[in-house]
Design a binder for these strands. Structure first.
Length: 579
DNA sequence: GCCGTTTTCGGCCCGACTGTTTTCAGTCG
């Protein structure tokens, strides 16, 4: 069994952690961390790069690490890793997960108390023995005890919409104290990451300490982890951690850039500043003579480095600086670009509203067209559609379209279906039934754990069916709950590009599937995407905004997303992909 | 260990906060 990219990334992260505990050169450690991140971002298996002798072409991977990857892939093991493991047991690395425990503390706990696992640490804390370590007082012991208690909760990530609404609540609460306070959500939330580990807020006010004090006194706050004159960290009653940074108003731009991250993006940005003899921080640019140049907005930060403003969704150190330098940043899609929504349900299957209600809401939201795609009658799906019910449904849709036309409203309901791809790769409806529809969405719902070859072949068979226009939520992942299917996505993307099959970014916040990295790779291979709501209720038609954020993180422009097109163009594309 | 629009050698992000060892190292984002 060969190592996956994730396995290799994990090993390099463990190598970096171990070296850090051993106090080795910090730049060498940084190199291993960067290599690990780079591998985690790769669209293809490492073995593909190895076969093409292209490992060293990956930014952050040089001769030495490329060789080590080769050894890992060929032998499944690495002498450096084995040596480090013999010096630092794996359990010691787990100690780093506890808040307040970093590499130096982990090493001392291991050296002086023999603590080599989280269980060991718990036992020692309970026995009150941490204070035997020089420099460890009552507060440190208390913090570590709390850190251990909250470990599992701290490591849980929350979905973006939940984090957004929590952030909005906190912002509103702060504005009850300071009317018109300039405050916004930053961090991974502003970069539109699908899940966030904690909530980051930025505020601007001359009296920074007063805002911090108001923040830690909010009723939502359960515990104050840390607070000073310009920042504070708290745990909310919901268990979510929230961090606030407050700066004087003239520093808004630099602070916004700093606190939006990502960390990797910021490190790159500060390196670019150094090349220009400038040192950048949340306070602004420090010049060689010590004078500070503040930035009132973010554009000024990037402009000082000779760059155009980079959208937050791209700030992951995944090539955005090179694109900015060469003037090739994408013109990212926006919600306003969407004309239609090609995947939603009604009471004809498991939706909770009629076709008329879904249409009315979509129309009110400004969509020009929608497709009703109820589930095919198949295993476990209650009230799905079969060939006969599809004919009845067609009549209902035709009648509704006639009403819109009679009112002179340019709104169109297309008739589709979400047909199941069965375990053997065939579709759950006969071709004859599909042929009558405007548009066919096919998706995997069952047997998602099939072996790679089998499930990939299944999806390829669906893509090859001339009636299939869209593959919905291609991997089937459910965030924080279920990994996606083990698909050879490279092959899937190539087939979709060749057939003109549209691949979906499903906007359900629990799915967001394809994810940003896969969607970006699909675009590189010439795939056209669609961003659909998969709404089961009129309220969920708004979910499109999450799908759009994911498309932006995938560097997508409007033209690369089919439901930004006029309805005629969509229908023409779907018709022409029928061989 | 990686990297190059001043460099194939000599660099490598930056500051706030905390506890405790009273002057700064460790942690975090």
């Amino acid at each position: 069994m060969s190592l996956s990219n994730r396995d290799v990334a994990h090993i390099f992260q463990a190598i970096a952690d171990s070296m850090e505990i051993l106090g080795e050169d910090r730049f060498r450690i940084l190199a291993y961390r960067r290599a690990s991140d780079a591998i985690g971002d790769l669209p293809l298996p490492l073995a593909d790069y190895q076969a093409r002798h292209a490992l060293e072409d990956i930014p952050g991977i040089g001769k030495t690490i490329a060789e080590k990857i080769g050894v890992l892939l060929d032998t499944g093991t690495l002498p450096l890793y084995e040596r480090l493991k013999s010096q630092i047991p794996a359990g010691v690395l787990d100690l780093l997960r506890v808040p307040e425990i970093g590499p130096r503390t982990a090493k001392r706990l291991y050296d002086e108390l023999g603590i080599a696992s989280l269980d060991d640490l718990r036992a020692m804390v309970d026995a009150g023995r941490l204070r035997e370590v020089k420099g460890f007082g009552a507060k440190t012991e208390q913090r570590i005890r709390q850190g251990l208690e909250m470990l599992s909760q701290r490591e849980q990530r929350v979905l973006m919409p939940h984090a957004m609404s929590t952030a909005e609540t906190l912002i509103a609460a702060l504005r009850e104290v300071f009317v018109d306070l300039r405050v916004t959500a930053v961090g991974s939330l502003r970069r539109a990451c699908p899940t966030v580990g904690d909530l980051d807020l930025l505020a601007a006010q001359d009296d920074t300490a007063a805002v911090v004090q108001a923040f830690i006194a909010l009723p939502q706050v359960a515990e104050v982890l840390m607070s000073g004159v310009m920042k504070a960290s708290v745990v909310l009653h919901s268990g979510l951690q929230a961090d606030l940074l407050v700066v004087p108003p003239p520093q808004w731009g630099s602070a916004l850039q700093h606190f939006t991250g990502s960390q990797a993006h910021n490190i790159r940005l500060r390196e670019l500043a150094l090349e220009r003899g400038l040192s950048f921080s949340e306070h602004g640019f420090r010049q060689a003579d010590g004078t500070l140049m503040t930035c009132a907005d973010e554009t000024q930060v990037y402009a000082t480095l000779g760059l155009p403003w980079i959208p937050p969704e791209l700030r992951e150190d995944r090539g955005e600086f090179a694109a900015a330098r060469s003037g090739t940043l994408p013109n990212l899609i926006t919600l306003a670009d969407l004309r239609g929504d090609l995947h939603m349900h009604s009471t004809w299957s498991d939706g909770r509203a009629s076709i008329a209600q879904m249409a009315a809401t979509a129309h009110a939201l400004g969509r020009e067209y929608i497709t009703i795609t109820d589930h095919s009658a198949y295993l476990g799906v209650t009230g799905g559609v079969d060939a006969a019910r599809l004919r009845d449904q067609a009549a209902e849709i035709a009648a509704l379209n006639a009403e819109y036309a009679a009112r002179g409203e340019a709104f169109r309901i297309l008739h589709g279906v979400e047909v199941d791809i069965t375990p053997d790769g065939s579709l759950a409806l006969p071709d004859a039934a599909l042929a009558d529809l405007d548009l066919v969405v096919a998706s995997l719902h069952v047997s998602l754990r099939q072996p790679r070859d089998q499930i990939t072949a299944r999806l390829l068979q669906a893509i090859a069916n001339p009636h299939v226009d869209i593959i919905a939520h291609p991997t089937g992942r459910i965030l924080e709950r279920r990994e996606g299917a083990d698909l050879d996505l490279e092959v899937v993307f190539q087939a979709a590009a060749a057939n003109g099959t549209l691949l979906e970014i499903n906007s359900n916040p629990e799915r967001l599937d394809l994810d940003a990295l896969h969607a970006r790779r699909a675009l590189e291979l010439g795939v056209t995407l669609v961003v659909n709501s998969d709404a089961h209720h009129p309220d969920e038609l708004n979910q499109l905004r999450y799908g759009i954020l994911t498309a932006r993180r995938a560097w997508a422009s409007a033209a690369q997303v089919a439901n930004t097109w006029p309805v005629e163009q969509v229908l023409k594309h779907c018709a022409s992909s029928v061989i």
